[in-house]
Design a protein around this nucleic acid. Sequence first.
DNA 1: TATATAATATACTCGTGAGTATATTTAGGG
DNA 2: CCCTAAATATACTCACGAGTATATTATATA
Lengths: 217, 217
Amino acid sequence: MASRPTAKKSAADAATTALWSPAASRVRDRERKREAVIQTAARAFRARGYHNTSLDDIAGILNVTKPTVYHYVENKEQLLFECFRAGLALIMAGFDEVGDSTKSARERLSIVISRYAEAITSDFGWCMVQAENQDLSPAMSRKVKELKSEIDQGLRRLIREGARDGSLRKCDEKMTAFAIAGAINWIAHWYRDDEPLSAAQIAARYLDLFDLGLQPR
Amino acid sequence: MASRPTAKKSAADAATTALWSPAASRVRDRERKREAVIQTAARAFRARGYHNTSLDDIAGILNVTKPTVYHYVENKEQLLFECFRAGLALIMAGFDEVGDSTKSARERLSIVISRYAEAITSDFGWCMVQAENQDLSPAMSRKVKELKSEIDQGLRRLIREGARDGSLRKCDEKMTAFAIAGAINWIAHWYRDDEPLSAAQIAARYLDLFDLGLQPR
DNA sequence: TATATAATATACTCGTGAGTATATTTAGGG
DNA sequence: CCCTAAATATACTCACGAGTATATTATATA
């Protein structure tokens, strides 16, 4: 393996990379660096896919070698897991935001969906969506599944509350939550940074469908 | 590499495997065998993921060695592509089915969505959904993208026709098609063979959402 | 029945990538 | 200013998996 692999760094990588740049004042803040590793991994995973991204790649982008990466994370799987967790946190933040609101369930659902879509279009969101059980050890797979189900539970709860407060029509709670989550998760598959619509705009259009349906009124 | 790797065959594999079983009358029908290779690959990819499935695995399931697999397909990428193509064909069959129908666009869309969901829950459907550009050569990636867009075009067309014939409300054609396709594609991520609801039942619930929306009428 | 061709197997190569043993540098605390 | 611990690098190992060169067996046809 070539030392200090000469990786092509995008402008967007510069901010994180600067932490190691020879010029910079190398305040070694373990936590900051760890986060930079995770952030860089997320970006790389999203760009090339988990399996097509080696730890050498990630190290290269950071201007560092593989053992350094291992100094901050246990292994590749954990790296994916951390990215996943960050993505999940973004989504859960949406739920927290409306947690103590007095708004109708319908309004709260709107907000959650919008935040959800924003999260999904981020690097971490991609990881959160793509963290496949198949790529994880049984233990980690269980954990991921468990955590993912928080989103599902949150959506179902809003749908249930909507049926109670009358702001949403009664429907199959589970399948409706799956359909909505699926539509949003899928954004990660097609969204590119040059997409003309913002995540919020996409969410608004999706909400139009979920709210009103396609049948003329 | 161990010769004739002792792979655990599921009951469902038996039918395809029988083509090579010593007892069977070995009518060597190239096309049949090729299809068995592709079918077996699809099942394995879905079960363990594309990257976690080796050609030795696939050969093993078929009671055969790797060069035999190569006798029927160029390489692993092409194997995925064939699976993708089979999945796509299932979906496009839904569009063909309603092609010359005099039904309203709304009714036709219902049928297409139902067929689409059925296709997605199959092994080929999984491959169709998961065939990521990241795993394919540039040329193949282009081809896959091109073919996938047929689904999108088909959906948009129905949505457009619905606006014309009055059976569907006017909406953002592109984003609506994306939302619907996303919701359905996502089924591949969570559907398991022990799922209590059939694909058609899932589709019916999804259609309920897409048709009527969540806002009480 | 001999021969060409298809189908399959054996036994490799070769690259790549995760992970590590060990050395070296850097920085802070005594 | 020295000494310990953290941070990083060098230089590996090792397994695995795609793909192949080559032999062997079966089958169809002349």
